[in-house]
Computed example of a mutant assay.
Amino acid sequence: MTPATWITASRLLAVPILLYGLQTLDPMAHWICLGVFLLAALTDWLDGYVARRFDQVTELGKFLDPLVDKLLILCPLIALVDLQQIPAWTVAVLLTRELAIAGWRVQQTQISGANLWGKAKTVSQIVAVSLLIAPLPPSWELPTLLSYGLAIALTLISGLIYLWPQPSEA
């Protein structure tokens, strides 16, 4: 495995920490979870930079990176459903999109990198999950929900664009 792929895999270490820390209503635990989440999210940028800069783009990396990204986003959201902070149906919508894209990607002979819509989806999800994890005052409820709504919308839009038949090159 390349260093870029190791960086990608390291993001998985955040998942059990987030799931454990988000089980409590302790604000300090949530601030710690936010730090862990943001650090893990930063490695998403770092592994891509390292892979491109040092010519370490691999098929394994192109497969593993989005899979780990999905776990990093969906696992905290599932914990937040358990805390009744967000409705379960919203996570089901996100999960359905991710499974549909994953199923589609498995059938492809060559795995392509994320497009602009996929990157916007990822950034919006990171912002929304960050706001949802953070123990913010009630005045932040509306911006947090709007951010989460935008993340859901971009997730659906990017999924439709991904699956939309592209004109074949002649």
Rank of each mutant, 00 (worst) to 15 (best):
L12A: 14
A14K: 09
V15H: 12
V15M: 07
V15A: 10
L18T: 11
L19C: 14
Y20P: 00
Y20K: 04
L22K: 05
Q23C: 02
Q23S: 08
T24K: 02
L25F: 04
L25R: 08
D26Q: 08
A29E: 09
H30G: 13
H30A: 15
H30W: 13
I32C: 15
C33M: 15
C33S: 15
G35D: 13
G35N: 10
V36L: 13
V36H: 12
V36W: 13
F37N: 10
L38P: 11
L38G: 08
A40S: 14
A41R: 12
L42E: 07
T43G: 13
D44Y: 11
D44S: 08
W45P: 01
D47H: 05
G48V: 04
V50L: 08
V50C: 03
A51G: 02
A51V: 03
R52Y: 01
F54R: 03
F54Q: 03
T58S: 15
T58M: 06
E59H: 04
E59D: 15
E59Y: 00
G61W: 06
G61E: 05
G61T: 06
D65F: 06
D65C: 05
D65Q: 04
P66G: 04
P66R: 05
L67W: 10
V68H: 09
L71V: 10
I73T: 11
I73D: 06
L74S: 10
C75E: 10
P76Y: 11
P76E: 10
L77M: 14
I78A: 15
I78H: 04
I78M: 15
A79F: 12
L80M: 13
D82F: 08
L83W: 05
Q84P: 00
Q84Y: 04
Q85P: 00
Q85F: 01
I86A: 04
I86C: 03
P87I: 03
P87M: 05
A88Q: 06
W89L: 07
W89C: 00
W89K: 00
T90C: 07
V91Y: 07
A92K: 03
A92Q: 08
V93Q: 07
L95F: 14
L95D: 06
R97F: 06
E98H: 06
E98C: 04
L99A: 12
A100C: 14
A100V: 15
I101E: 09
G103V: 11
W104R: 02
R105M: 08
V106K: 04
V106P: 01
Q107V: 00
Q108E: 05
T109I: 01
I111R: 00
G113K: 00
N115H: 00
K119Q: 01
K119F: 00
K121A: 01
K121G: 03
T122M: 15
T122C: 09
T122R: 03
V123Y: 03
V127C: 09
V127G: 03
V127S: 02
V127Y: 07
V127N: 02
V129G: 11
S130P: 11
L132M: 13
I133V: 14
I133K: 08
P137W: 08
P137V: 11
P137M: 09
P138K: 10
W140I: 05
E141C: 01
L142E: 13
P143L: 07
T144K: 06
L146G: 02
S147C: 15
